[in-house]
């Protein structure tokens, strides 16, 4: 395919505008296979952002706590899985034990952090999650060592390699593990959605999200609900850790991905599960496309800040996010 490039007449400004507003689209049209590849990459990383954000949303909805420790929970879950496997535990037993560890973590957090701080201002609970973060970093390093580890994939029967499609006048490569991640993540989200809308505990979770005090007054046990949501967030963290770890490696550096979840949450709304998913996908897609087509204009590295600029715009114009809780107010 050949598109006639129209040179703007002379002016540097016109050329600059051309580079920003027209050239990237020309490139997209010229190489649709590259566009498709970029979109796919964007969707995959967006999905991982969405998973992290999902962990935040679960806890924020049920306890009003912005859980700074969600990032380290991802690392801790993945480390537990790999660490147990390296210690000679069979892969699936290690997976089961990692799930048990996440449950114990939820239980301990509820007992030692949330329960003593009931009724304290939100900011104090937020600071407490910093404490959990640093505790988990230290504890994780003592138990598993500080070296990066390689995520186990083959023993868990996660596929390897890539599928290559020769289409769109070129080729598009899809990593099989990314496809597996997409399938498992969708199943998990669907499971959570059904759990929330249909079950007795799910209803109680939504009730707690609406009003702690009213939930207490009808006999809903906040302690029980908190353990359940922290456990759910732990499971989400484990799944995120497995797939993120398979893309890079498992190390404490992963903890900073928690910060990437922040723009996702601002975009999607802190209390909306669909918001977390759509927000994650938008940020992932946007990041990759901007980096690929517009990045060269500013010397690359846009993916470090693009998400935050989007978040800033949202804070200015739609602070409740795309799918934030409908604010019900009777007048």
């Amino acid at each position: 395919m050949h598109v006639e490039k129209q040179r703007p007449a002379g002016s540097a400004l016109m050329h600059f505008l051309y580079l920003i507003f027209i050239d990237p689209f020309v490139q997209m049209a010229q190489a649709p296979d590259l566009l498709a590849q970029t979109l796919w990459e964007g969707l995959v990383s967006g999905m991982l952002y969405a998973l992290i954000a999902l962990g935040f949303v679960l806890i924020f909805k049920a306890s009003g706590v912005f859980n700074f420790a969600q990032g380290i929970m991802v690392v801790f879950a993945a480390l537990t899985l790999v660490g147990l496997y390296e210690a000679g535990v069979p892969a699936f037993l290690a997976l089961a034990l990692a799930i048990v560890v996440m449950f114990i973590l939820a239980f301990v957090v509820e007992r030692s952090v949330l329960r003593p701080l009931v009724g304290q201002p939100d900011i104090i609970l937020f600071m407490a999650t910093f404490g959990i973060t640093y505790f988990l970093i230290g504890f994780g390093e003592i138990v598993f060592g500080g070296d990066p580890k390689v995520m186990i994939t083959a023993p868990l029967y996660l596929p390897k390699g890539a599928i290559t499609y020769h289409t769109l006048g070129g080729m598009v490569q899809l990593q099989k593990i990314d496809i597996a991640a997409a399938v498992i993540a969708s199943l998990m989200v669907a499971g959570l959605a059904i759990f929330f809308s249909r079950t007795r505990i799910g209803r109680a979770l939504r009730a707690v999200a609406d009003s702690h005090e009213a939930a207490l007054s009808v006999g809903i046990s906040l302690e029980q609900i908190w353990v359940i949501v922290w456990f759910a967030a732990g499971l989400v963290a484990l799944v995120t850790g497995i797939f993120w770890g398979a893309r890079s490696d498992v190390s404490f550096a992963l903890e900073v991905i928690a910060l990437k979840a922040l723009p996702v949450l601002i975009l999607g709304g802190f209390t909306s599960i669909p918001g977390a998913i759509v927000g994650g996908l938008i940020i992932g897609l946007g990041e990759k496309i901007v980096e690929f087509y517009w990045g060269p204009l500013v010397g690359g590295g846009t993916d470090a800040w693009f998400a935050y600029v989007i978040a800033l715009l949202f804070l200015l114009f739609r602070p409740q996010g795309l799918f934030g809780e409908r604010i019900i107010e009777r007048i």
């Binding site: 209803r203 109680a204 009730a207 999200a209 009003s211 939930a215 007054s217 009808v218 809903i220």
Partner: peptide, 17 residues
């Protein structure tokens, strides 16, 4: 103190927790 984002029937069901 009803749960505003739950339907009336869901509100009643939470009472049976």
């Amino acid at each position: 103190m009803c749960f505003g984002h739950l339907t009336i029937e869901e509100n009643l069901l939470t009472g049976a927790f």
